[in-house]
Amino acid sequence: MARFRRPLGENTAGYLFLLPWFIGLTVFLAGPTLVSLGLSFTDYNLLDVPNWVGVRNYERLFTQDRRYHNALMVTLTYVMFAAPLNLAFALALAMALNARIKGLGAYRAVYYIPSLLGGSVAVSILWRQIFGLGGIVSQILGFFGFEGSSWVSSPSQALWTLIILHVWQFGSPMVIFLAGLKQVPAELYEAASIDGAGPWRQFRVITVPMLTPVIFFNLVLQIINSFQAFTPAFIVSGGTGGPLDSTLFYTLYLYLQGFGNFRMGYAAAMGWILLVIIGAVTALAFFSSRYWVHYEDAGR
């Protein structure tokens, strides 16, 4: 590597090191994002030349495609319940484990394992059986005298099996909360104790405000991730989004249109709308954070 022996100009060195990343950015990320925008104004089936149709894809998506509206509602419902419930469990368990408890490592490991495995096809298959006819859930309900039924094939319950699957994976935000809780100075609690504040008040006045940056971070992460959920809906519904489209996630519908029907222009338009939605929700979260997120070291 004689070429590098003498110190190169910092610019040259920097660009050389960044070359693979920059190619990746252009070819696989930024480029496709822009091409996708272009394609969203066309009809394209991968074989023929893209056919310019103007805003017709968007028009159809916004005004005519009822399956799309349904997919949007299903996904929003999923995000609205799955993300906050997941964080609530994560925070509650992190609080419980933070109490200088014996066996922290073991508890943390067990609670974390679902996060590790939850995204796999194997766990989605398992979920389909647990909530299917004769699965654990209907057996337990039957034990208490309820009619055993298959949640997976019930249009009103199928989405809940997926929400439960997401909430079950609260281990990784829990680990982030645990790290955040360790940063809260113990003096604050001591001072509050002396002032006579009980555990609930300490939680409200010290823990929550000090933890808001971590809550915010986890919230944004959860929203971005759960908007893009695909595997559980695909596997649990057998690739259809059923029953009656009740688990037709946005990404699943995009997949079915783009790669099932090869309506790639249409799928590209859906991809771009998803980008805008995720961007808007994230921006909203950032905007709202000024009012509820407390940065202790803002001036540092």
Partner: peptide
Amino acid sequence: MLPFHVTIVPQY
């Protein structure tokens, strides 16, 4: 933050 699904069609 870029969703995978925006880039997937051109990547494919």
